[in-house]
């Protein structure tokens, strides 16, 4: 049964007076601190209940999984959802499954879980390499892959990983499920093409083919901060040593994660050399149009994107042992 209680977060007495509310009051108040705006709290135990609630409440509902992005936003009252649907107790959404050449991460798979999994390391190496850059251990212990993708922070690592690997996001609603290609998913600053009545139940990646070269490069002000500029890079070489396919997927340089398509096209069919990488780096710096903020100027980001491009390509090539 869906467990819905209306409460003013932090006002434990209110909740504790309601039948069966005490445990929950303790739990919520501890997690939320005392300053969230009021909201109604729902904690469905099955996916169907969650989808039903979502369909019923519609616009006024927010899904909560790890809470690592949502709760800070609420605590400073930038977000004031009237309803929270906490999906963290739904069973069956926390596994990493492999089926033929597809690896599927359920909605409740945490960053730490993915990071520690040999499946991630062997089958989705780019994702594995991105993990240590996400915040700190405590955050990775609670935050989820799908939460990060749904949140769509343009400076976050995982949206760029999803874009680089052509991942598919699995959205479910009372109407059924659909797959959304990563390139169709991120629609703007903190926004996606997910519908009001949908939630992400998982994200799936193709298993990395043999010989896939990957690199994650990031500059952040401090250890664990969101990126000033970051790059997830994938390179495939053909048997004759030319670049067969390339993905340069940036984060922190625009309102969504973005691929440097011109630079990618110039890579494909070329022989990977240090000189080429210089050229590609310049191309990237010119192609991107990043913002300025208090942490770095636009010029800085343009320049640094080029530097990271060079470093990522060199890192990829170092995995083959050949760089001419």
């Amino acid at each position: 049964m869906a467990n819905s209680v209306t409460q003013r977060a932090g006002h434990a007495e209110n909740l504790a007076n309601k039948p069966g509310g005490r445990d929950q009051a303790a739990k919520i108040c501890k997690g939320l601190g005392v300053k969230n705006p009021p909201f109604a709290y729902h904690r469905p135990e099955t996916l169907d209940e969650a989808l039903l609630l979502l369909a019923q409440i519609g616009e006024e509902a927010k899904i909560m999984s790890g809470g690592q992005s949502l709760l800070p936003v609420m605590a400073i009252r930038l977000g004031q959802p009237e309803n929270i649907i906490d999906i963290s107790q739904i069973r069956g959404l926390d596994s990493i499954e492999t089926e033929s050449d597809i690896v599927m991460f359920g909605a409740l798979v945490t960053h730490s879980q993915a990071e520690a999994s040999p499946v991630t390391r062997d089958s989705v190496p780019l994702l594995h390499k991105a993990m240590p850059y996400i915040g700190h251990r405590a955050i990775r212990n609670r935050g989820t892959l799908c939460g990060s993708l749904a949140h769509a922070d343009p400076a976050a690592e995982l949206p760029a990983v999803a874009l680089a690997l052509d991942a598919e996001l699995i959205a479910a609603s009372t109407d059924g499920a659909r797959f959304i290609a990563a390139e169709d998913f991120f629609s703007g600053f903190l926004s996606t093409t997910l519908q009001q009545n949908e939630l992400l139940v998982g994200v799936r990646f193709h298993q990395a083919p043999a010989g896939m070269l990957t690199s994650v490069q990031e500059l952040s002000r401090r250890h664990g901060d969101f990126a000033l500029v970051g790059l997830t890079c994938v390179l495939q070489l053909s048997s004759d040593g030319l670049v067969d396919s390339a993905a340069l997927s940036f984060f922190g340089v625009a309102s969504t994660p973005s691929r440097a398509t011109q630079a990618e096209q110039s890579l494909v069919g070329s022989r990977p050399t240090t000189e080429l990488f210089e050229e590609i780096a310049n191309m990237v710096s010119n192609e991107l149009d990043p913002p300025s903020d208090t942490h770095a100027s636009a010029n800085y980001r343009k320049h640094a994107a080029g530097v990271l491009t060079k470093r990522a390509l060199a890192d990829c090539m170092s995995q083959t042992g050949v760089l001419t």
Binding site: R221, S292, H295, A296, S297, N299, Y300, K302, H303, A304
Partner: peptide, 16 residues
């Protein structure tokens, strides 16, 4: 001296 300022001072990037 954040990273942006270091590169500006060194003439690597232009100041905005």
């Amino acid at each position: 001296l954040p990273p942006t300022r270091i590169l500006e001072l060194a003439g690597v990037i232009e100041a905005e």
